[in-house]
Design a protein around this nucleic acid. Sequence first.
DNA 1: GTCTATACTTCGATAGAC
DNA 2: GTCTATCGAAGTATAGAC
Lengths: 204, 204
Amino acid sequence: MATTRRRGKKDSKTRIRLIDEALILLSEDGISALSARNLAQRLDLSFQIVHYYFKSMDDLLIAVIDHCMTGLLTILEGAIDSDNPLETLIELHKGQAAAALSLEFEIYAGRRPALREPIKRYTDLFRQAEYEAVSCHLKKHNIDKNLPPLAVTVMLTSAFRVLAIENAIGVTMGHKETLAWLSSLLSFPITHPAELTTNPATTS
Amino acid sequence: MATTRRRGKKDSKTRIRLIDEALILLSEDGISALSARNLAQRLDLSFQIVHYYFKSMDDLLIAVIDHCMTGLLTILEGAIDSDNPLETLIELHKGQAAAALSLEFEIYAGRRPALREPIKRYTDLFRQAEYEAVSCHLKKHNIDKNLPPLAVTVMLTSAFRVLAIENAIGVTMGHKETLAWLSSLLSFPITHPAELTTNPATTS
DNA sequence: GTCTATACTTCGATAGAC
DNA sequence: GTCTATCGAAGTATAGAC
């Protein structure tokens, strides 16, 4: 069962390069494009090297997720008690690729047992941190008490992620209005999550 | 360029069966599982028959989307001026597989040029119908005029779809609160989009 | 640590027999 | 209308040479 196959060390230089490059590849082309061949080619390595460092492609994906989620969590948690926690939260969602990718991960995890636990764990951790950031913002600005912070958190982050996906295919109906409404609810200016001019869906 | 290859008629019995079965397959296992072999096997046909009816797998996918979206649009548009338009809208989102699948389609469309136009078109049409349903509801119940109907539409449908995806991996934090808040905003009871008991994420 | 060689699987797509 | 046969591309993964 458990193969005795040689495997590269965790702190290996190449292993780290693979993880970093994988994240870029994922952001650009999505999960389906993350193959050993695709990835290794970008670093001018043979594709088998991926299997030297990672037992399976799922393991690679988990490593990528661990890497980027711990980074993002650190940023978000560090912002919770800052002057402007909401700004950081929203900034993290402005990278449209990241916002779309997180939903892609969750969909993927629904079909891949190996991915479910880690993805669920980070999703929970993220929601908790986001919730604290939003709560802190609402308190700090003394905003209408019957605005339930947890619900607002879910709505805000859901909307950002769906809008990111829709932007990529040129759907924009209601985006402006949604962001404007969220802005007014939170008394916080929210601009379009990527100006629509920088990432347009070219008409074929 | 344009091959002279024989292709089955649009109203062929088998073609329709393929489309129907494809939708079931998609709902159960997602886009990545939709292969000619997977699909044909379910109907005890040889996999090449798929290429007899569809020039490419993208074409099959478009046919599936055409089929199910026109059906859903008819239902939704028929509900707009009914007694309870919101009920129909929400009912359509209760099928968690469908809600999750629609987002999966949009993500997929972002990377597949051939899918972009049809998916964008249906997304726009759907939003328009949803918008009218929500507007009608708000008017009918004389709900607070400074609740922007288009923004509410986007929020409501985004939330439903993200919650469906999260449910599938066992993430539930904030779901109850979000639905409760939406219920209160819309003066309309919204229950959990699949009671969490019928579609639980089994712990591996 | 990285490579070549290789095995096995699954996929999309076409041609041609029946 | 459906089948068999087949091609070629791409995927995961392992073994072993260097």
